[in-house]
Design a protein around this nucleic acid. Structure first.
Lengths: 344, 344
DNA sequence: TTTAGCACTCTCCAACTTAGAGTGCTAAAT
DNA sequence: ATTTAGCACTCTAAGTTGGAGAGTGCTAAA
């Protein structure tokens, strides 16, 4: 079911033009703008064929043609040019990683902002599933007479801190002992594995610290929920979408924003569209979630040493500048992976 | 220039109805809905007077009347009923403070979310100016062979952490010494006061730790900029605005969103509208910034022990449910202040 | 001083018209 | 056997027109 050369040229022209203008494109325009060397009439015949084959569609009888999802798919798989980024764009991306930033979250946030600025679409980010992350370091510090600080670092490089009430009867060497015990018993475990069982063991080892250990356990459990919160999908640059003709209708815009707020949906969308491949493109109705079938999503996972540190996703209209988006995403992801692999 | 009783009743009716419906309101409607006991004709005469006095205005000759900014101001100052919150609303607010949350930022974020849900307007929040906050605790922890963690806590209860590269030649007791020295020299100072001068002093005291101290100084300086970032205005619930008739025009909506992105403008707006009073209302053209003159802003500062810990602001159309907004803001702020004063 | 009555103004909306873009089909041209 | 010119046809977008309805201000009567 391959297309002949002329059909391909016409399909490419339609996709290219529609991505740029958002207007249905007619035979006359193709003949004028993309010199293929055949008359509008012939182009019309070819377009009728392409429509029958499912690559194009017509908003109404006397309008030009618009690519169908199948049309975009063909374009993405076979026709899409590799878009070179300009020096300025390169510079913007590199700039994020020049700063000495040592934390995953911040780096990802910055990257999302730049992606969103460069593409003018909405960028989605999802952090690593912290339930599966392993504790790398844990300790308790004293801040003042009554307050302390519980500090945890995971192997993903995420840091979390919690201010705690300090039992009065603990001195500094107690804290060092507690920190050491916690480290010895908990480091290397995933946050899910740290249950009351393990904590009971520790408590048995150190009955004298019962009070504070109970408190810490409680905080650990609370953190689990919260961290889940943290690993949720965050969207950046959503207001940019209002510039696109697709969202000139306020209803559409509202619909889009409320979509972004359905964080479980967005989480699933980012997860399922992430096959092993580096870059993943889901076009319109290819998406299993009906609410997202008017959009396209391009995702890219951040894999470092086999660890899945999260996903970038770009959410935009099906009429998306795929080639630009893909190369921007590729670049940012590569830089980020490089930065992270020296960091972790 | 006081209004007589009948004019006040009519003004109240217009403001009340316009806040509810966003439609200009005519003499007939007032006579029907708000039984004042006079005929539409008389109401017309009174409304003509109110218009001449500047309390009402007419979108066009044959439309009803709409409150002017002066009209809203009169309403807010003299007519506004005290809105009692429902039990459910009370519950939602209380709920935030039931969780054991020990951090200012998180608490504020939660509070903003609830305010935005309850009012359906956009909530703005601004943290304390960290440049003026005082260091309460600082120390350096080791995470693994090559990595360490610089930890800082301010008197406002904000915590910041930075992962750092550890020089190889430091052992654990070195870290304790460094932490102690830093604490002794820096605690109590504002972040602005911590300049290279002070650090030079410390370095002189401990020439052997030159390398790590230089690094820490660099991080401190970087943090200053970043913390500024943190104390910037954050907006919550902006997409809710799309429900209001004021923003049915996409241009208007776009304009609103790009306004939110001008963070320096929003910062100034929150600062200047904050006189000593607890709650501050700025209506339309009362705002010194022309871009904001189509909106009203209600602010409330979080003052604990004379320390300014930040500001809540609600941004909405001039046609805003002032009484609801004010009482919600009062409640949340009071709860928050109570929570913080036990915390800090 | 208040009110009924009425002419007047302005907006909103639905119905209609027109220009323009694009199509599909047919028949002629290559 | 393709390709192309020509043409009738269709559909939309953008006016234009003409009430209907809401609301006003003024005048004169209550």
């Amino acid at each position: 079911m391959m297309l002949d050369d002329r059909k391909i040229k016409i399909l490419a022209a339609v996709v290219h033009d529609y991505i740029a203008t958002a207007e249905p494109i007619g035979s006359r325009t193709i003949a004028r703008k993309y010199r293929i060397g055949i008359s509008p009439a012939t182009i019309r015949n070819e377009m009728a064929d392409l429509e029958e084959l499912g690559y194009l569609s017509q908003p109404h009888t006397s309008a030009g043609r618009v690519p169908s999802h199948k049309g975009y798919r063909f374009y993405v798989d076979f026709l899409m040019p590799v878009k070179k980024l300009s020096a300025a764009e390169h510079g913007l991306i590199r700039q994020i990683f020049d700063k000495r930033v040592n934390e995953l979250e911040q780096l990802v946030r910055e990257a999302a902002r730049v992606i969103s600025n460069l593409t003018s679409y909405t960028t989605l980010t999802m952090g690593p599933q912290l339930k599966s992350s392993r504790l790398k370091h844990i300790n308790v510090n004293r801040i003042d007479e009554t307050k302390g600080l519980l500090l945890m670092v995971t192997n993903y490089g995420t840091v979390s801190h919690n201010i705690i009430e300090m039992p009065q009867n603990l001195n500094d060497s107690d804290l060092v002992r507690i920190s050491n015990i916690l480290n010895d018993n908990l480091v290397g475990k995933t946050l899910l594995e740290i249950t009351s069982d393990i904590m009971d063991n520790i408590k048995n080892e150190m009955i004298e610290y019962d009070e504070i250990l109970n408190m810490l356990l409680e905080i650990l459990i609370e953190n689990l929920d919260e961290e889940d919160e943290r690993s949720k999908v965050v969207s950046t640059g959503s207001s940019k979408m209002l510039d696109y003709p697709e969202f000139q209708d306020v209803e559409k815009a509202k619909n889009f924003f409320s979509l972004l707020e359905k964080s479980d949906l967005m989480t699933k969308a980012l997860k399922t569209s992430t096959k092993p491949a580096a870059i993943n493109i889901t076009i319109g109705s290819e998406n299993p979630f009906t609410e997202l079938q008017d959009f396209s999503i391009v995702t890219s996972n951040i894999m470092v040493d086999g660890k899945d540190l999260g996903v970038f996703g770009i959410l935009g209209p099906t009429r998306m500048e795929y080639s630009r988006v893909v190369s921007i995403l590729e670049h940012v992801t590569n830089y980020l992976i490089k930065a992270l692999s020296t960091m972790l």
